[in-house]
Each structure stands twice: as structure tokens, then as C-alpha cells.
Write a protein that binds this DNA or RNA. Structure first.
Lengths: 204, 204
DNA sequence: CGCCAGTTTGCACTCTGTGCAAAGTTGCAC
DNA sequence: GTGCAACTTTGCACAGAGTGCAAACTGGCG
């Protein structure tokens, strides 16, 4: 299903993109956020500064690749849920499944780094916003005619806020990778269950 | 209660800040987003480029002043609700009251402009994120011991997402200012009621 | 007035981000 | 394999963001 023919060209571009993102992540970990420039990332990835900007609009964008795969995964998992499942149960299952994404640890690091750097935080929030727009479209298709635009926007926005809250909590506690994904999944399910059943009772 | 002595100095700074923000808004409306520079804003406000950057970190920041007063108002209204009121009812009342903020129309324009400009959108999202952190603190104080950190983060994040959804809907329909605030208030109350009672039933 | 503290300004500098055209690669038909 | 067409990388030039610094300026107060 996900089989796609990749020419040598596309393969190379993908590899370059991956190399740049990795270089950026390395620099962020060693020099700390804000302690490096686009040119340094390019050098580390063995491309020119100009090429760096062919792939990313800004140094910050090179850092949020892991979050984007997380969000892509969320979107794909949601699309894969059966169409007759109640929308909130589908969302809970889909978001819970995202914790199995390969570079989950990078996402956690990203949350921590973004907390201390407004530029990175802004870029990070933009990625979530773009994902929100895509998921809103998907949910509108799924519920066509059954729910108002306002309902869908409020629901999807809240969904992602809950996921963010869960990830923030998970990222802030220094998990020594012990049961990491499990804890995150529990938190996500907990917040989304509140969303489904209402926040009236601070049950959890 | 809000009486504070203002020296001539502080008065001047406030006036300068206001003038810069107004200049930025004027330019955004005439030249369109992205069609002007920090220097042009400074010129229009009769200050130097350097002074502009003493007041705002970026051209985009000068534009989101109206959103920040909206969010300040939300925070203040929430703090003013009686302490024994259920938290969700307090939030509904507080957010509904924000529609009486003076420059509501500017907020709507801002939502529309941000939709078409990633830089402005990122800055806008950052303002909401900062407000979220402040409101989280306030709610944690209010519910001290009665709710988990995760609950509070998920709740406040969802609260603001619902408010955003309501404002987005309100801003996107070209209200000829007819019943503008009323419509917005209705939408806010509608989304927050879903939040309180759960999104399971697409009732609205 | 005359001084102190706070504010504005010009200047110099680094870095971001983009258009453009030249140089280098890859895919493909022959 | 040759060679052309399409695509990618790179260097260069330039406009604009953002900041540190020191000099000039302004308000407050004895």
C-alpha cells in the first residue's frame, strides 16, 4: 500500500534532507538552542548554505522533522480507523498508536528545547497548526453533514491540545526511557477520555 | 483598583508603543501582510528603526497587540470569578465576557491576516501559548490539590483551542459588524459547553 | 540651574532568507 | 556510451531582521 517507486533523484533528496535534519539536531544538542547558525548546519551536513535553504525555510524548521512525522502518523492512523467508529473513540485509538512512531525520543527533546526558545516554539506550534488544518479536513469529510464546522474545529483543536498536554508532561519528566512510550500512551488516553466525556469532573 | 500612578515617562512610553502598533496595523491593512518593513513602521510612527526594536522583537509582534489585550482580559475575567464556582462555568463566563473588549474588530482582522501569513501566524500562536501558561498557573492555584497537572494542562489547552475555533469562525464570516460581538459570544459559549459536557454527541 | 536616570538614536555588525544564473548530476532515448 | 533534457546544487548579491554599544537627548527633582 505504501509502496512507491523512488528514483535515484528522490532518494538523494530524501537522504540530503535527513542529513540536514540530523546535523541540526546534533548541533542543537551540543551547542544548545540558539547557539548555531544555518551556515553551521549546512557545513555539518556537507551542503552549501544555499542548499540548506532549499530544504528548510529556517534553522528551526530543520529541527521539527520528528514532530512532523509524529503528526503525519496521527493523521494516517486516524484515516485508517473504521468509518462507523464513534469519532472520539477513533481519535483515542489513533493518537494512542502514534506513540509507536520511531523517533519518539526526538519529539520529547523537541518539546523540552522549545520550552526555552521562542523561535523554536513558534515553529513547533506552526507544525501543529498545519496538522490541525489537515485533520480538520479529514474529520469534516468523515462526518460530512453530521456536525457543524464549529464543532469540528473545536473538537480537533482540543484533541491536539490534549495530545500536546500529554506530550509536555511526558517530556518534562526525565524518563530514563523506562516504559517511556507506555507512560505517554496512558497520558494521551487519559486526556482524550476527558475530552470525550467532558471536563466537568476532575476525575483523573 | 486599577488605579496606578503614571509618570510622564511611562505615559510617553505607552503612547509610543500605541503609536507603533497603530502604524503597523495601518500598514498591514494598506500594503497587505508582508508588504512592509520594520523601517516603514518606524517611519510611520515617527521613531527610529532602533526604537521600534526597543518596543517589539519583530514587525509581527507589533501587530498582535489586540490579541494580547483580548487574552489579558480573559485572564483577568477568570481571576474575577468567584472561587467556589465550578471551573468550567467560570471559564465559560470569563471567555464570554472577553467579547466586550474594546478592539475586538482588530482581533478578527488579525485572525484573517494570520491565516495567510506563516510568520504572523507563528507570532500569533506564541501569544496564545504565553497566555495558556499564565492561565494554567492561575487554574492550578485555584484548584490546588483538587486536580492533576495533566488535567489542568489538557483543560486549559482545550479551553483556548475552543476559543480560537470560535474566533476563527466568527472572523472568517464577513460580519458587517451587525451583532458581531453577540455572534462571537454565542460561538464561544457553544464550544465551551461541548468541552464541559463532552464531545461525544455532536449536539450543536 | 544642574545632575541623575531613563529613553532615543545612529552605527556597525551578524544572520536570515531569496532571486538569479552558472555549474554539476541524473535519467533516458538512441 | 553519447548526448540531450530535466533537475539539483552552488556562489553571489542583496534586502531585511535583530542586537550591542556609545553618544545625544529628555524628564524628574533637589
Amino acid at each position: 500500500m505504501t509502496e512507491q517507486q523512488i528514483s535515484r533523484r528522490e532518494q538523494n533528496k530524501l537522504e540530503t534532507r535527513r542529513a540536514i535534519a540530523q546535523a541540526a539536531l546534533d548541533l542543537a544538542r551540543t551547542h544548545g538552542m540558539g547557539g548555531f547558525t544555518a551556515e553551521q548546519i549546512a557545513d555539518q551536513a556537507n551542503v552549501s548554505r544555499r542548499t540548506f535553504f532549499n530544504y528548510f525555510h529556517s534553522p528551526e524548521e530543520a529541527l521539527i522533522v520528528s514532530t512532523e512525522s509524529f503528526l503525519d502518523r496521527a493523521e494516517a492512523e486516524l484515516a485508517a480507523r473504521p468509518g462507523d467508529e464513534p469519532i472520539l473513540d477513533a481519535m483515542i485509538a489513533a493518537l494512542a498508536a502514534t506513540t509507536k512512531v520511531e523517533n519518539l525520543k526526538d519529539c520529547g527533546d523537541l518539546f523540552r528545547m522549545a520550552a526555552g526558545n521562542p523561535d523554536l516554539l513558534g515553529t513547533h506550534l506552526l507544525a501543529w497548526e498545519r496538522a490541525e488544518a489537515r485533520i480538520i479536513s479529514a474529520v469534516e469529510d468523515r462526518l460530512r453533514g453530521q456536525a457543524s464546522t464549529l464543532y469540528v474545529h473545536a473538537l480537533v483543536g482540543s484533541l491536539l491540545s490534549c495530545a500536546k498536554a500529554a506530550m509536555r508532561e511526558w517530556a518534562s519528566s526525565e524518563n530514563p526511557d523506562h516504559n517511556a512510550a507506555q507512560t505517554l500512551e496512558d497520558s494521551i488516553v487519559a486526556t482524550l477520555t476527558m475530552l470525550r466525556d467532558g471536563f466537568s469532573r476532575p476525575s483523573s
